[in-house]
């Protein structure tokens, strides 16, 4: 078994400890991923904090330290999904992507980005998560499957459906 020194800081009882192996680097990465999925600071912070707490409770379940990052990401993505579902139910907090700071450029590009933002908002939580993991985090299908705890085929179908929905929205802006 490989021990990534970047993973290991706190060693409880002289053994690899799942939670103790989380480092500042992982936390920053996790927060950025949550932010990318959720689109705002507060929810990203909430999701990451909840994920940390769950990881602490569940730490004995991680036996392979090489799986640490995927394991924690899976917990985090589940938390993000919960928040997205809550947001969808409450209908009070639309996706913030369209309100993110834009890079100043031409009118046409801005319009295109607004359309894209609205299109992304139209995705359901699971579709949105696979889009962010695939095209923002640049993960492979297998890596996404590992983080979501679903078969690769499920990821492919979600991605396909997401692209189909995005294309339909982009081609028929209202």
């Amino acid at each position: 078994m490989r021990a990534d020194p970047g993973h290991m800081t706190l060693v409880g009882g002289g053994k690899v400890d799942a939670f103790g192996a989380l480092t500042t680097r992982h936390l920053d990465q996790a927060y950025r991923l949550a932010w990318a999925i959720l689109g705002n600071d507060q929810e990203a912070q909430d999701a990451t904090q909840d994920a940390l707490t769950v990881a602490w409770r569940e730490r004995r379940k991680l036996r392979d330290p090489d799986k640490l990052e995927a394991w924690f990401s899976r917990i985090l993505v589940n938390k993000c999904r919960d928040l997205l579902r809550t947001r969808a139910r409450s209908r009070i907090q639309p996706l913030d992507l369209a309100r993110q700071p834009w890079v100043p450029d031409g009118t046409e590009a801005t319009v295109n980005r607004d359309e894209l933002g609205r299109a992304l908002e139209s995705l359901n939580p699971d579709q949105r998560i696979v889009v962010v993991l695939r095209f923002w985090a640049d993960l492979t299908i297998d890596d996404i499957a590992e983080r979501l705890g679903v078969p690769s085929g499920t990821v492919k179908s979600r991605l396909h459906n997401s692209l189909h929905a995005l294309r339909a929205t982009l081609e028929d802006p209202r």
Binding site: D28, W35, T48, L52, L97, R113, F135, W136
Partner: peptide, 23 residues
């Protein structure tokens, strides 16, 4: 999507200190 998401989705580089403290 890749180009647009990388251009527009720019989360902070670091998690807030409260999260580090929680961890």
């Amino acid at each position: 999507l890749h180009d647009e998401l990388h251009a527009r989705v720019r989360p902070p580089a670091y998690a807030p200190e409260q999260l580090h403290e929680h961890m």
